[in-house]
Structures are given as C-alpha cells and as structure tokens.
Amino acid sequence: MKVTVVGAGAVGATVADNIARKELCKELVLLDIKEGVSEGKALDMTQTAAILGFDTKIIGSTNDYSKTAGSDVVVITSGLPRKPGMTREELIGVNANIVRGVAENILKHSPDAILIIISNPMDTMTYLALQATGLPKNRIIGMGGALDSARFKCYLSQALNCSPADLNAIVIGGHGDTTMIPLIRYATWNSVPVTNFLSEEQQKQIIADTMVGGATLTKLIGTSAWYAPGAAGAAMVEAIVRDEKKLIACSVALEGEYGQNDICMGVPVILGKNGWEKVIDYKLNADEQALFSKSADAVRNMNDVLKTLA
C-alpha cells in the first residue's frame, strides 16, 4: 500500500504521523506547496522510527505530484485553517480552488486512488471533489463524522466517568457547529443506553459541547485543532487499507438515503478496501429526521456558493 497526505500543516502532519506509527503502508508521501516544510517534517518523523519501532518509508515533497504516483489512498488536508470567530463556511471561496487543483493533480498520477477530504468546509469540499473528478462515489469520502463522534464520546466519558473505549456513539449530519446531530438515543456504554445514566440536562449539555467542539478549540488555540482531526483521518485510512469493514460516520454522496439526494453529508457507512461500501440506516425518529433535513438545507446553501465561483 502507498498513501499520500496532501498538506503538511498541523492536521496533515498529524495524519501522516499516525499512519507511519501504525505502519498502515510501506510508503507514505507528505506533500505541501511550501518549500521544505514537507521534507522537514518527513525527516523529523523518520527520525522517530528507531525510537517508536516502525518501518514506514516517509517521503517529503514540495508540490511534486509525480512522487505521489501509484497511491492507493490520498488524504487532502490542503487549505486555510479556521481562525477565531471564523466559520467553516467562510473558507469556501479560497479552499474550493485549492481542493479542486489538488484532486486533479493527484488523479493524473494515481487514477485509482480513494480520496479522503478533510479540508473545510468539509461536506462542501467533498461534494466539490465528487463533481470535479467524476470518480465513483465510493472513492470520495469526507472526514467529519469520525472526528465529531470522537468528541461526542469524549464528553460522554467525562460525564459518565468511564473509558471512551467502552462507549459507542455517533454523530451524523453536516460537519458544522449548527448542523451536526449527536445521536444520543443510540449512544451506549457497554451495550447499555447512556440515557439510563444521564439526566436530560446532562444529555443536552453533552450535545451542546459536542456541536461546538471544534469552535471551542479554535478559540483556545487560535486556529483549528489537529490532534483529533489527524487521528480521525488516520483511522479512516486504516479501515480502508486493512479492509476492516468498520462502521464510521463519513460524509458521502447520498442517493435517497436518509431522504436526501445530490449532497454529501455525514452518515454511518462501512469503510473497507473499496472505500465506503454501504450506508447503514439508523432508522431516525421524526425529530432526528427533521434535524437531518434542516442540516441538509444548510449544507446545500454552502454548496450553492460553489456556483458563484469562477
């Protein structure tokens, strides 16, 4: 297996670091437009191999897409990160051109690659990549639900004073502060519904904290988070390259699922060697379905901005 990460900023470098440590591929390419950044970070990671005991070959490259040739999976993190007070939606004008160009250049050298999109606004960038490349829908996957679900489990574990590893919980909908939907009705602690242990007030607080999880970190750090997004992206790569058939919330093209068409949004999917292989129907109740439809409307409004771009 060969994996490429485009964008050697904090998120991209963290994705690459996790991939290397887990030995998810024999060859890992880290590519960036800034001279020396990807080469330096690749060398830095390589120097940890003797300490951490991995054998992944890491190659850094400044905008030389020929180095990415033959990649099986490509993670796209390129674009501007959020700043305090900035929404993911505000990034669309700049990042759309970046993501389109990256996807086109990648496919010139790796026509069979599966693309994982992390660049924000993620659902819209995933939709853009699908429209711009014409790839089969199973090979375009947006990372958002995996991250939001991890944050959901984090807040649940704190409220329950339990290990996050003992929790199953998922977030669907758009990857935005007002569009994501933490499905607390489906969240379990070792197969027991968490609602058995949490008051209604606690549940509401956990949902609220999850929805602003990214914005909270942006306010604290001064830019977008990277440790959890990087780990989430690497977890998706792992599910694909190891053909794990793992259920992860991802932004994918919907064709009637959850009542939506012509849109990419976060839903539970099975990830394996072919990319996303099928959508899992969680049988939403009326309130949850209404939230999902409202989220879809918001994502479509962002997608409409693409029509105004040159």
Rank of each mutant, 00 (worst) to 15 (best):
G214T: 13
A231S: 15
S251W: 00
D243N: 13
V252T: 06
L271G: 11
R242N: 13
S191M: 08
G272H: 04
E238I: 14
A234T: 10
P229L: 05
V241D: 01
I206W: 00
S199R: 12
M236Y: 05
G222V: 05
P229A: 05
I221G: 03
G275P: 04
Y227V: 12
S199C: 13
T223K: 14
P193S: 03
A232N: 11
L247F: 00
T218Q: 01
A235S: 15
T210W: 03
V267H: 07
A208V: 09
W276G: 01
V237Y: 03
E255W: 08
V212C: 15
A228D: 14
Y258I: 05
C264F: 00
A228H: 13
G259L: 13
T216A: 11
G266Q: 05
I270G: 06
S199E: 11
Y258W: 15
I263G: 00
S224I: 10
W276I: 02
I207W: 04
C264A: 04
V194W: 01
Q205K: 12
V194K: 01
G266M: 06
Q203V: 13
V267I: 12
V241H: 01
G259F: 14
G233V: 09
V269D: 02
E244F: 00
C250Y: 02
N190T: 12
G256C: 09
E238Y: 04
Q202F: 06
P268V: 03
Q260E: 08
A249T: 08
N261T: 00
S191F: 04
